[in-house]
Nucleic acid binder design. Structure first.
Ligand code: SF4
Ligand code: SF4
Lengths: 131, 131
DNA sequence: ACTAAATAGGATTCTTTTAGTCCTATATTT
DNA sequence: AAATATAGGACTAAAAGAATCCTATTTAGT
């Protein structure tokens, strides 16, 4: 329980790699360096690109590069770029539609506070702290 | 991602219920009150009992009651009583056996720190804060 | 002694999520 | 034109999570 998904782990490794080399790196290069499945990493990179955390260059000599300084990339952003529905509870993620018990639930509000604290923790750590 | 398991949600509801009534309550009563599947709750209660958070009484007029004051039951304990392998990463949960990349992994240590912060968050909130 | 109501716990099944793979299209450099 | 990259859809496999079923044991009350 509470595991970071592989997508997120791979994403962090990739961002760390990019931050260290501060230049362009290909998905293949990163996959080889970190021993992660290329196909999966490719998807992860695409998601990070869509979010605007990294930029991409196609074709030969292409690859990926950071769009921001490592200090400006909190883990929270990385996680949310790679996973939808990041939340402690269904209600927290999708409101009343997320859970039948929404109206009667007696633990919903306190858990909302907890979620808040979690978010702060993940906002407080950045890629810079992985270097 | 990051969802509390149903076991944990149900466990928290049950503990809240017991804390509010400060006496004995049956699994059936709690299940009905909170709209949760009885069979599943029954397992959850057994786990909480094994951990020593609650006590149980068998037979007619039996049920469950808190062994501790609500203030003395941090969420961390509840979660760990109900789930094994609570950790952000496989390595964090099972050490080197948990992951092939253990030796070469470059994000392991920083994530360890993050896990630490998470643990503090969950230690800092107790059942008393659900009342 | 018997019955009813409760916990204890094993085993199994169903569902959902996560991880991984495969294939094709498009862009760009040489 | 060929080689090397990203882009992205579709699919499959594996694992985790949730729920259910069934049987045994304990205990209060009659
Ligand atoms: S409303 Fe209550 S039961 Fe439903 S998801 Fe939120 S916390 Fe869980
Ligand atoms: S060693 Fe690295 S890859 Fe393996 S589980 Fe830990 S963080 Fe993830």
């Amino acid at each position: 329980m509470f595991r970071l998904s592989k997508r997120v782990e791979y994403g962090l490794m990739a961002l760390q790699h990019l931050a260290r080399r501060s230049g362009v790196a290909t998905a293949r290069e990163i996959a080889d360096a970190s021993n992660i499945p290329y196909d999966l990493l490719a998807k992860v990179m695409q998601s990070l690109k869509r979010d605007g955390i990294i930029d991409s260059y196609q074709g030969v000599k292409g690859g990926y590069a950071l769009m921001l300084t490592p200090e400006a990339i909190p883990l929270k952003r990385v996680i949310e770029a790679l996973e939808e529905d990041v939340a402690l509870t269904d209600c927290n993620a999708n409101g009343a539609q997320g859970c039948d018990r929404f109206d009667t639930c007696t633990i919903r509000e306190p858990l909302g506070g907890l979620q808040q604290k979690m978010a702060e923790t993940f906002s407080g750590m950045t890629i810079a702290q992985l270097l």
